[in-house]
Computed example of a mutant assay.
Amino acid sequence: MVAAVRTVLGDIPPADLGVCDAHDHLFLRTPALPGQELADPASAAERLRAFRASGGRSVIQWTPYGMGREVEALVELSRATGAHVVAATGLHQAVHYPAALLDRIRDGLADLFVTELTRGIGSTTVQAGLIKVAGAFHTVDAHARLTMTAAAGAHHRTGAPIAVHLELGTAALDVLDLLCGELGVPPRHVILGHLGRSPDGAVQREAARAGAFLAFDGPSRAHHATDWRLPDELAALAEAGFAGQLLLGGDTTVPETPGMPHLLRRLHPRLEETLGADTVSALLTANPARAFAFGAPAGTAGDTA
């Protein structure tokens, strides 16, 4: 199987991703954030153009099933701006969905994810390029186990990468025990999000030693208290030999989030001072090219991701 990243306009060679925002949201809607929806195509286009003007090339949108992905708008934005955009399937925490919806889909989650990865999202032919799931605060609860089991099943059938929301940056090792230990997902196909929100260097190093990708995604208003630690956290991990597993993202969740333009305009030069230009370049280009490439499905020869 030839490695590829699956964008909303089709598969591309991983090297074509270029400078990549590894975790963001152009569109997002949830009852957990009433009145703070990301639902305006004009605003999404403005943010994406600002990101492109700062040198950005690709955005990985982690908005999963049932949270206002607006895949047709993603296609139009990608065409209009020249940015590569990757859409997600998967399921977030239960709080983001009506109970009736979860009851309706829970027994067919793996099939749903596979369909969206291989045939199209909803009534479109736009295919998802990753599976987004979520842990709970310091644990893997019953809902997380359900969604992660489905995600692992879909990964084994498609080779799709799995991106994990860690609630307040916690439970990274429990997630890896489940996904990679019990469910057999190769760690190189797992992206752990929000590790900077619980800046525990020992946990970060252990997750990196396991082989997963570590996404440091912010800044955001809610987690500003830990954002300032980012350069030192990344430097410590790079010095420990894990520079090749680190990813950066803006994670725009509400309209006031600094998000993707801030990632390159302000954060990028600050990180260069600490890490050096070559390392930061790898975090934004070479690392996401590996992290978001599909691997060979289980039962096929080889895995080029």
Rank of each mutant, 00 (worst) to 15 (best):
residue 28 L to R: 12
residue 211 G to K: 00
residue 169 G to E: 02
residue 32 A to D: 13
residue 287 N to Y: 14
residue 167 E to D: 13
residue 218 G to P: 00
residue 19 V to K: 01
residue 114 V to T: 13
residue 65 Y to W: 14
residue 179 L to R: 13
residue 183 L to S: 03
residue 82 G to N: 10
residue 217 D to V: 13
residue 259 G to T: 12
residue 87 A to C: 08
residue 10 G to K: 11
residue 235 A to I: 07
residue 25 H to D: 11
residue 293 A to W: 07
residue 284 L to I: 01
residue 165 H to A: 07
residue 162 I to Y: 06
residue 106 R to F: 04
residue 265 R to D: 12
residue 293 A to T: 07
residue 216 F to A: 01
residue 186 P to E: 06
residue 204 Q to V: 10
residue 190 V to A: 05
residue 286 A to M: 05
residue 111 D to P: 03
residue 84 H to N: 14
residue 178 L to M: 13
residue 129 G to K: 04
residue 44 A to D: 06
residue 147 T to V: 10
residue 45 A to R: 15
residue 177 D to K: 11
residue 263 L to D: 03
residue 59 V to A: 14
residue 128 A to S: 09
residue 183 L to F: 11
residue 56 G to V: 03
residue 149 T to P: 03
residue 121 I to N: 10
residue 256 E to H: 02
residue 177 D to Y: 11
residue 200 D to C: 08
residue 46 E to Y: 02
residue 64 P to N: 13
residue 191 I to V: 15
residue 108 G to K: 07
residue 21 D to A: 12
residue 7 T to R: 01
residue 294 F to V: 11
residue 115 T to F: 05
residue 242 F to E: 08
residue 296 A to V: 05
residue 174 D to M: 12
residue 182 E to I: 00
residue 81 T to V: 11
residue 305 A to S: 15
residue 215 A to P: 00
residue 243 A to Y: 07
residue 74 L to I: 03
residue 117 L to F: 04
residue 181 G to C: 08
residue 214 L to V: 08
residue 118 T to C: 06
residue 20 C to R: 08
residue 79 R to H: 15
residue 58 S to H: 14
residue 145 R to D: 15
residue 248 L to F: 07
residue 295 G to P: 03
residue 197 R to K: 12
residue 159 G to K: 09
residue 77 L to M: 13
residue 154 A to S: 06
residue 148 M to G: 05
residue 239 E to L: 12
residue 214 L to A: 05
residue 76 E to F: 00
residue 214 L to H: 08
residue 250 G to Q: 08
residue 174 D to I: 04
residue 164 V to Y: 14
residue 18 G to Q: 12
residue 156 H to D: 09
residue 283 L to S: 00
residue 240 A to F: 11
residue 253 T to Y: 04
residue 304 T to L: 09
residue 56 G to A: 06
residue 289 A to C: 11
residue 207 A to Q: 00
residue 48 L to K: 06
residue 56 G to Y: 08
residue 292 F to M: 06
residue 181 G to L: 10
residue 67 M to Q: 14
residue 280 V to T: 07
residue 32 A to K: 10
residue 154 A to I: 05
residue 229 R to W: 01
residue 252 T to W: 02
residue 239 E to D: 14
residue 124 T to W: 12
residue 295 G to K: 02
residue 276 G to N: 09
residue 177 D to G: 08
residue 61 Q to A: 11
residue 236 A to Q: 14
residue 272 E to W: 03
residue 130 L to G: 09
residue 164 V to T: 09
residue 267 L to I: 11
residue 95 V to W: 01
residue 104 R to M: 14
residue 159 G to C: 09
residue 140 V to H: 04
residue 1 M to D: 13
residue 134 A to T: 14
residue 137 F to Y: 15
residue 159 G to L: 04
residue 234 L to S: 08
residue 63 T to K: 00
residue 62 W to P: 01
residue 27 F to H: 02
residue 145 R to A: 13
residue 64 P to I: 14
residue 112 L to V: 00
residue 146 L to H: 02
residue 82 G to L: 06
residue 8 V to H: 00
residue 124 T to L: 04
residue 227 D to F: 15
residue 203 V to T: 15
residue 133 V to A: 08
residue 245 Q to I: 06
residue 101 L to G: 02
residue 186 P to I: 06
residue 266 R to L: 13
residue 147 T to Q: 03
